[in-house]
Design a protein around this nucleic acid. Sequence first.
DNA 1: CTGAAAGCGCTTACAG
DNA 2: CTGAAAGCGCTTACAG
Lengths: 335, 335
Amino acid sequence: MKVSTIEDVARRAGVSRSTVSYALSGKRSISRETRERIEAAIAELGFTPNAGARALATSQTMVIGLFVQFFEDEFSPAMLQYVLPISDAAREAGYDILMVTETDGPHAVQRILSSGMADGVVLLNVAYEDQRLPVMRTMKQPGAMVGLPRNPDDFDVFDLDFAEAGRILVDHLAERGHREVILITPRQHVYERGGAYAWRFRDAALQQAASYGIRVRSYYGETQQPLVNQQLNTILDAREETAMIVHNDAVIAALPSVLYSRGIRVPDDLSVVGVFSEDFGKLFSLPYTAVETSPNKLGRLAVQALVQRMVGPRAANAPRVELVAPSITDRGSAR
Amino acid sequence: MKVSTIEDVARRAGVSRSTVSYALSGKRSISRETRERIEAAIAELGFTPNAGARALATSQTMVIGLFVQFFEDEFSPAMLQYVLPISDAAREAGYDILMVTETDGPHAVQRILSSGMADGVVLLNVAYEDQRLPVMRTMKQPGAMVGLPRNPDDFDVFDLDFAEAGRILVDHLAERGHREVILITPRQHVYERGGAYAWRFRDAALQQAASYGIRVRSYYGETQQPLVNQQLNTILDAREETAMIVHNDAVIAALPSVLYSRGIRVPDDLSVVGVFSEDFGKLFSLPYTAVETSPNKLGRLAVQALVQRMVGPRAANAPRVELVAPSITDRGSAR
DNA sequence: CTGAAAGCGCTTACAG
DNA sequence: CTGAAAGCGCTTACAG
């Protein structure tokens, strides 16, 4: 069971350790026959370089830290939409993912980065005043984030343009003549902990609605069952509006069955539009027109930007803040 | 930005590197004042031991490899139910999680373990003839799995007792006088790639049903929308049965809205029972009686068993195969 | 084209 | 109670 080392390979091939190392990296030319002997030795011994030793020698771990927080007030299947593309993109770039889900985000970042376990990090669900950022600033590793913080300075930041998303959906309803609209937002707690996507969407939607003279009644949506259904029923009981904008994953996921159970047909009795990715929509069979949130794209962008900074010279290019333009997918649920 | 090393701490505290190391580990006694000087130096320099160097010296990475495959024929939110508890349990035991989602599982296991990036692994969605197991056997690190393979030999294996789960649900319906039952299973492809949970459940359910003289019509359920809804509608169109057993996450998640849309009331018009965790049920607002799948418990058991093997002497105790007894949660959806 | 040696930052017998 | 030194398994200038 003894794992073989580069020393074993060298001895077996009758060369020095450095030659084996160079054969592995291709950083200097090696005679044909020497290379063949080395390759044979590697194959016979089943040698793989030890990652820890390599990391120590090169100061590169080839690991990306992925910091996710599965908050109670967020909807876990939606978070997963970001995690998988990030994992895939990282692997394509030759990196592995250390996934950290600790509740104490700042502490976790501190722990992983100061011990040098990762070459860089991707931060998910970044809040406006995210406490992980001050910690990041004291670290030498670069970071990319999904979610817009107040002060992105050194970091590459990617997020959906939620303000534009709000306007697009209001436009969509305005064009169809709706004058009274229900807006269901993320939970109040999301605003309190600084989930900027929540107010960026809401503020823009309300302002756009005002410009049309549309009246909006706004509710903080729930995220846990059975509260979601109860609240939806209460809202629908009091409904005078002809349309509904849902910016809340848990609510939109529960909406079809609640509407069915009340005999409310979409779009005949009520127009519904939402904010969710195509995959999410499939997962929950959502037949609603929606702004595409592009978790796939955002996750990949974050990884690509991070990889650039990890390999390139520090501050090779200015950090970028990119708000991805939302597109609407018309599923005919508003009229 | 230069990260300080144990050498820096030693110099600052006026002691040797070994003394600092021992102060850190507590493996030998240190005089009060020496300790205080070291602690002060550590604090002033913001020193954290380098994980790679420590791993090289101790042959311990304090990392657990978590191998998940997000198959198209499985339902991702259900997989997440396993991942999070595993991450939590690992952290509680002092380990971090390297999450590997590569499609080529055997290759990924090979890569991570032979390079010594993890001290052990947890394998998720283990198949009957899982190709990752032969690779695991050539590695020195221990492994724990969730899902029952044909030959678990060296490994700790945890899974729900799906056969018992099938019997429990049939019993539940039999007691209520049902004679004709629909069974919706995982997709056919799950059987083909050796997802043992699928046939363990089905075989036991069919056998139990036979013992009662209950007639079962069995369907391979779909996992992708819009196929799920289409198929459900087809099945319900042809329905003669009074009850339905659903062992398919995607189908059960979509069921409420399909039933509502058809005006089928549960349990008045149709009795429905399923197989899903409490959290999953909440996520999708499922009002159905179900066998609890306990992903939380299974994930934690796997981590605990793995940790024991990683710290303790190799083969300290015999590998164990534990089939967790399912419990039924009666939500009144069958009568 | 190849080798000997230093160095990455720790831990841990060995000595005192 | 403490220190000097070897060693973990690599990479990479330096020399030839």
